[in-house]
Write a protein that binds this DNA or RNA. Sequence first.
DNA 1: CTCCCGATAT
DNA 2: ATATCAGGAG
Length: 208
Amino acid sequence: MDINKLIEILKEKYPNARYELDWDNPLQLLIGTILAAQCTDERVNKVTKILFPKYPNAQAVADADIGELEEVLKPTGFYKKKAKQIQDVCRALLENFAGEVPKTMAELTTLPGVARKSANVVLNNAFRIPSGIIVDTHVHRISPRMGLTKEGNPEAIERALMKIVPQDEWVQFGPAMVLHGRYVCTAKKPKCSECVLKDICPKIGVEN
DNA sequence: CTCCCGATAT
DNA sequence: ATATCAGGAG
């Protein structure tokens, strides 16, 4: 797989790639990303449409009745854990970060429910900071398939991608890979015939 | 490795 | 009825 060719083709196919969560400010993206654990963006968007007007800022979430918060979050699954996480995140933001979403990987990953994937989503999309490369379930699946790495865990895959993709491409590359995995290079029955990468992809492990 | 949990498609 | 979707903490 020619990495420069891959970057070029992805950029052309997904010029404005971004995570498909609805948000108006960094806090909303952070909350949406936490809720997106084991849950589609589509379902997160349905919930945040109710959640964000009801709790318009960090203080409102911090002060929320945990039971009411849980009710709103229920459709995203793991709702008790997520309710506590986003409330604790907002409290930590108010206490430690002057109510603002921090702009570094180290600070973001101190927050409950936020590891590298979520931190990269926030930093890449809200702040255009090339903190790393988003490795969600899609990037995790398609990177070995494309022959970009033989690594199997998210941290190692991210490290491998960071080595072969120039840093000034990370913010574009990550979200584009996510979209490509979600809609074309799917887990079952990947749509190779309509894939823009079909001529340069080794299709490792893909049955056809 | 287990636990945390539910909507939608087939 | 069963498959698919798709992170993080302990």
